[in-house]
């Protein structure tokens, strides 16, 4: 295993119902979720999921309502007990941990931001933020100081003595974010953090989170049902359907090579020029050679950045990688074709 891999999930299953183990043992794997429900009365919420999350990256789990996203991420810290499978965090098997080790993991390694904020109505903002520290047994003065610090980081200084209900939705989720960051975890888990917010605020919060991510560089697992949000936030995206992975890849891979119709459907609304990069669409160099006056672009440039360049030049452009070597060429027609989602 790669030394910088933070989380590994291997063949995780979660089945809800009166007798999950038995159902899993006798499961006919060719059946769909609906058929299993009909025959056994059990809901297969997570079905044989495997993925890995590298340190410092944002891993997005995307899927429609009921596809098992929340269940999956709750299996990571065993807020929900998986029916079978393996979850490794820093090479420690979470499933095998005893209660004390698990509590310790939750207190130090990971914290979570919730869809409907989950702020305690009986605690002031500052005490909400300090909750995780309080649980750890940190003294009042120390934890309040820490909470104030984080509060400032999310841009809410001055609101510490208010109650959550006195804040707007966006501000409440900032508090939720601050509460999760206050314990300085290695992994942050977001369960649809912004889906209860209206579009403008949502965009603002996404940008805020990206800004903070640059600052703190945490490993993040981010859940959403909004594909645009997924490609904006994610380094890698796992698309879930009926508890299973449809595809895992970078945003670009999903857009360029959707594995099935289910994934393709999501990608159709995506402004492809924002996602696709030169490397995905270039051809081997045939018509260009490297000379001083050829305009060149880089393989990981997004198409968005080239639009002006391509439209003003007639001939093909050379693609040159970091070592200065010519690796391909693109032309106007290729760019235009790539931007058509129904290609």
């Amino acid at each position: 295993m790669n030394s910088s891999t933070k989380i590994v999930c291997n063949n995780v299953w979660k089945i809800f119902g009166p007798n999950p183990e038995k159902t899993l043992a006798g499961l006919d794997h060719s059946l769909s979720r609906a058929e299993i429900l009909e025959q056994t009365g059990h809901v297969v919420a997570v079905r044989n999921m495997s993925f890995r999350v590298e340190e410092g990256e944002t891993f997005v789990v995307m899927g429609l309502s009921g596809s098992g996203k929340s269940t999956l991420v709750r299996c990571l810290s065993r807020l929900i007990e998986p029916t079978s499978g393996e979850v490794l965090i820093d090479n420690d098997d979470v499933i095998k941990m005893d209660a004390a080790a698990l509590t310790n993991l939750r207190r130090t390694k990971m914290s979570m931001v919730f869809q409907h904020f989950g702020l305690f109505p009986h605690r002031r903002v500052v005490d909400n933020i300090a909750f995780g520290l309080e649980i750890r047994g940190m003294g009042k003065k120390e934890r309040t100081d820490k909470a104030m610090e984080v509060l400032e980081m999310v841009g809410l200084s001055g609101w510490d003595q208010h109650f959550p209900r006195e804040l707007s939705g966006g501000m409440q989720q900032r508090v939720g974010l601050a509460r999760a960051m206050a314990v300085n975890p290695e992994v942050l888990i977001f369960d649809e953090p912004f889906s209860a917010l209206d579009p403008l605020i949502r965009r603002e919060m996404q940008d805020e989170l990206l800004r903070l991510q640059k600052l703190v560089k945490k490993t993040m697992v981010f859940i959403t049902h909004d594909f645009l949000e997924a490609i904006k936030m994610g380094d890698h995206i796992a698309i879930m359907k009926d508890g299973e992975t449809s595809q895992i890849g970078t945003p670009e891979e999903l857009v360029a090579e959707p594995a099935d119709d289910y994934v393709r459907e999501f990608t159709e609304d995506v402004p492809r020029y924002k996602v696709l990069s030169v490397a995905k669409i270039m051809q081997p160099p045939e018509n260009v050679t490297l000379s001083d006056n050829t305009t060149t672009v880089k393989p990981d440039d997004k198409l968005e950045a080239l639009i002006d360049l391509v439209s003003s030049s007639n001939g093909p452009l050379g693609v040159v990688d970091d070592s200065g070597e010519l690796v391909g060429e693109i032309n106007q027609a290729m760019v235009l074709k790539a931007m058509n989602s129904r290609s």
């Binding site: 810290s77 807020l79 509590t103 310790n104 939750r106 914290s111 979570m112 989950g118 314990v183």
Partner: peptide, 12 residues
């Protein structure tokens, strides 16, 4: 949710 929040922070 509230119980879940608490246990997600390692609350006993």
């Amino acid at each position: 949710t509230y119980t879940e929040v608490s246990s997600s922070f390692g609350g006993t």
